[in-house]
Design a protein around this nucleic acid. Structure first.
Length: 266
DNA sequence: TTAAGTGTTGCTCT
DNA sequence: AAGAGCAACACTTA
């Protein structure tokens, strides 16, 4: 599930419920999710520590440890982070669980194991090491930064938008919404985007991601809470253009399906 | 039933 | 050397 707005929701939950509690036992129940660290080393690093702040860059969530270093979390397609107050059986597909005093615990769950949990020394070095572009919601990400990020690529704009080394945070779903709102054809080569389109693309990127966060991305009722002018609720077989141009079209690029309106996106 | 599909990323091949 | 395609994974849907 998680793209930038969903990860931001996780960040806020972690910030609200997971900070400044001493971590007791750390249980790694599926070590395949650990990123270049053994279960023993991972547990040893976290046990007895407290998380002091939660930050996000693109789709990555990082929590700072009180004695230095960071816990890193990536969700892949099926990752989830759940807090529970009471001792209870771990949800299926739990990979890592941190116990807090009084029975509260934090579970990282991932069905398809396409995410990673790990450790990093430093926030900025982690971003560099992961080759992440600027965060799409960072305050400094203006039109000039967008142009710079897109650089000299000749790819289609949707592929470029989803490339985390170009711009961090956007995946298949929100790329479709952003390009619909900016009225740009997802396959349009980046060099053929004029100034007006770049301006619209930048504005739509920020507006869509901010609105998604505000309207509770990641919650079950997210789609129902979106305005009828959005593409997402129609993003399915038989979906209609919210601007009244009839059926949406689909296209495939690299095993991902995209939805767009051929009438209003150019 | 079998096969294709999936909100991600990373590796391989061109 | 940038960019396309598929593998990884474990399910769900057609």
């Amino acid at each position: 599930m998680p793209e930038l707005p969903d990860v931001e929701a996780y960040r806020r939950r972690l910030q609200a419920h997971g900070l400044n509690k001493t971590i007791g036992k750390v249980a790694v129940t599926d070590k395949r999710i650990l990123d270049h660290v053994s279960p023993a080393a991972f547990a040893r690093t976290l046990e007895g520590r407290r998380l002091t702040t939660a930050k996000r860059h693109g789709k990555h969530l990082l929590a700072k440890l009180d004695k230095g270093g960071w816990l890193t979390v990536h969700f892949g397609m099926t990752g989830d982070l759940q807090f529970h107050q009471d001792p209870e059986p771990a949800p299926p597909y739990t990979c890592v669980r941190l116990d807090f005093p009084g029975g509260a615990h934090l579970s990282y769950i991932n069905r398809r194991k396409l995410g990673r949990v790990g450790l990093a020394d430093d926030f900025e070095s982690f971003i560099v090491h992961e080759q992440l572009g600027p965060d799409a919601l960072d305050r400094s990400f203006d039109v000039a930064a967008l142009k710079k990020a897109l650089g000299g690529t000749k790819r289609g704009i949707k592929a470029a938008l989803m490339d985390q080394s170009v711009l961090a945070g956007i995946g298949n779903i929100f790329a479709d919404e952003i390009l619909f709102q900016a009225r740009i054809d997802p396959r349009k080569p980046v060099p053929r985007l004029d100034a007006a389109r770049l301006e619209r693309l930048h504005a739509a990127t920020r507006r869509v991601l901010q609105e998604a966060v505000r309207r509770g991305a990641g919650s079950e009722t997210f789609l129902e809470r979106l305005p009828s002018s959005w593409l997402l609720p129609q993003r399915r077989k038989g979906g209609q253009c919210p601007r009244g141009h009839g059926a949406l079209k689909t296209f495939t690029q690299g095993a991902r399906t995209g939805y767009y309106c051929p009438t209003c996106q150019h």
